[in-house]
Amino acid sequence: MGHPDYRDRPVRPYVITGGRAHPTRNTLRPETLLVANPEAALPVSAGREKRSLVDLCRGLLSVAEAAAHLGLPVSVVVVLASDLIDTGHLVVRSAPQRLVMPDLDLLEKVLNGLRKL
């Protein structure tokens, strides 16, 4: 009968992506952060998955997190997100990175400790 945890999806991933297996952008990775563009309204013709993805991205969300919420493979979400970035509905955000310089005294203590080894 099959594995009890397996559930067949009524819509296959290739249908959701319009038959495409590759995104228009090769820069999207599972950790890529996405946010919805509040000024871009989706057309009525947008599919349920694209609408759900944009709704999820009203707050900052990674591609992998979006895939988990949607219950779709990351590869499918990458194709959908790529389309939505191309149309201006989603924007890629970089993770905030703070360059924190360690205290010079701490570095000297570490260096002195290593010299004693």
Rank of each mutant, 00 (worst) to 15 (best):
S75G: 13
L42H: 06
P4I: 09
D55M: 01
K116T: 06
L117I: 10
R7L: 14
P38V: 15
Y6V: 09
A41M: 00
A67P: 07
A21Q: 02
T32N: 00
E31H: 13
A67Q: 03
T32Q: 01
R48M: 08
N112R: 15
A95S: 10
A36P: 05
V44Y: 08
G59N: 15
S62D: 04
L42S: 04
L33C: 04
L42P: 03
L56N: 05
V78P: 00
E31L: 15
E65P: 00
S45N: 01
L107W: 09
L99E: 01
N37M: 04
E108D: 08
L114H: 00
V92N: 03
Q97S: 06
D86Y: 13
P38G: 15
V63W: 06
L104Y: 05
T24S: 15
V100D: 12
P23E: 02
A36M: 08
N26W: 06
P10S: 12
K50E: 02
V74H: 02
R12C: 12
V91G: 12
P23V: 08
R98I: 14
L111A: 15
R7Y: 11
D5H: 10
L70Y: 11
L56A: 12
V77L: 10
A95L: 14
I16D: 04
A64T: 03
C57G: 08
V44A: 13
K109G: 06
A41G: 04
V54S: 05
G19T: 13
L72W: 07
P4K: 05
K109N: 03
I85S: 11
H89W: 02
A64L: 07
A95Q: 12
G2Y: 02
D83T: 11
L70S: 04
P4V: 03
N26D: 10
L106A: 07
V76Q: 05
T27E: 11
R48N: 05
V100N: 10
L60P: 09
V78W: 00
V15P: 01
Y6Q: 04
I85D: 06
N112K: 14
L104K: 13
V77D: 12
A21N: 06
L28F: 02
L111Y: 10
I16W: 02
V100E: 11
L60T: 15
A66V: 01
L84S: 01
P96E: 11
P4D: 09
L53R: 12
P30E: 03
V63P: 04
A40G: 01
T17Y: 00
R7N: 08
V92Y: 07
L90N: 03
P96R: 14
A21L: 06
